[in-house]
Simulated scan of single mutants.
Amino acid sequence: MHRVRSVSVAKLAKVLSRTSSRLKSTGGRPSAPLGSRILTNPDDVFKHNMWDHVQWTEEDKENARQRAEENSCTQIPISEQGKFDTDAFQYWDKFYEMHQDKFFKDRKWLFLEFPELLPSCAKSQTANGCQQQDGSTRHHSTAAIEENEAAIETTTFPGQHASFRILEVGCGVGNSVFPIVNSIKETDAFLYCCDFSPCAIQLVKDHPAYDNSVCHAFVHDICEETASFPFPPQSLDVILAVFVLSSIHPSRIQGVVNRLSSYLKHGGIFLFRDYGRYDFSQLRFKKGRCLSENFYTRGDGTCVYFFTKGEVHNLFSNAGLEEIQNLEDRRLQVNRGRKVVMHRVWMQSKYRKLHPPSTS
């Protein structure tokens, strides 16, 4: 059993001093995104299960780098790696057959961090422009948008008449699906959700909250280049990918994001949350589980990649999307029973599909 090392109180005090100074300089605690529970006294560390906005010392960074280097020095032979890609859906199908809907919890934080999932956010967009982070309005060509909307209206597909469409890729057993479904009922929104595990999709459809009047669940492998979606290109307002792109071989992720982005409307948003480099889960891998740099396979055959902020930016920018948000979410996760503290690192990002340039 891999032994978890706790963060010492002395090290916490050093980190908290830096965090406290930063908060004073910005006028207090940061609110959402990414939480507002700030640990300012190391003696309080075991009072809660999670602390937000944690600063790493140079020693923390170097220790993490060394541990990742150590556990990746022995890689799985190339001749044995192929199965983790070609048989990925089988590994995940077995995972869901074993755990059913008991492994993950519903993501109740979704709307706090991603309010773009709610159709009301779309109502603030005007017909001639969209509001940017800085408050300015960027004008765009309405002719191309109107032409695309007319083409969509003549196509028959689930959710055709909805004015606001969301796609969640890698939906699993519905831990994001059902919070969204329960929030968009009585609105003119529609949710699509897909996973390449038939078992997971069946569990979604069997859920008592599943409602095909506002949701369409289907089996789909987003790595399959020729596989088609049950809706036309440029028909989606939001794409949600939560802890899914990390399960794909790094060489295939860019192609996946490119293809998915083609289904966004101009002005549509790609919402992303996933594992960050040197997360505790990366550092606890043992030697012999590494497939390639920062890419590992777990004991059950499922895989995981750990992103950096720069990699995320390049990934979406190369797909023609503009950055709205790209954050590194560093937290302390606390096991109060065992009195251990773990550094968690997640990436959270939002990227918008550019409007076509104005022809006027």
Rank of each mutant, 00 (worst) to 15 (best):
R165F: 00
V177Y: 08
F229M: 02
G255F: 02
D87Y: 15
T226W: 09
G337L: 00
Q125A: 02
Q234P: 09
L110C: 06
Q100M: 14
S317A: 14
V312F: 06
F95A: 11
V238H: 08
G337N: 11
Q81M: 04
R336N: 11
L240K: 11
R3G: 07
S176I: 04
S136M: 11
W346A: 14
L112A: 10
S251D: 14
D279L: 09
N71T: 05
L117H: 01
V256E: 00
D221N: 04
K286M: 05
S228A: 14
R331D: 06
E80L: 11
Q81T: 00
L271W: 01
G299K: 11
N128L: 14
M1T: 13
K14F: 02
D274H: 07
I253Q: 15
F229D: 00
F285C: 14
L332V: 11
G320W: 06
R65D: 01
A227K: 14
Y278A: 02
L283M: 15
C199F: 08
N182Y: 08
R331L: 05
L112E: 15
F95Q: 10
G27A: 12
E328F: 08
V304A: 15
S281A: 06
R336F: 01
R338V: 00
C171E: 05
S197Q: 02
K11C: 02
S8L: 10
L112K: 14
R67M: 00
R336V: 08
R273D: 09
C194N: 13
S235N: 02
H161P: 10
I152R: 13
G301D: 02
D93K: 12
G129P: 08
R277C: 01
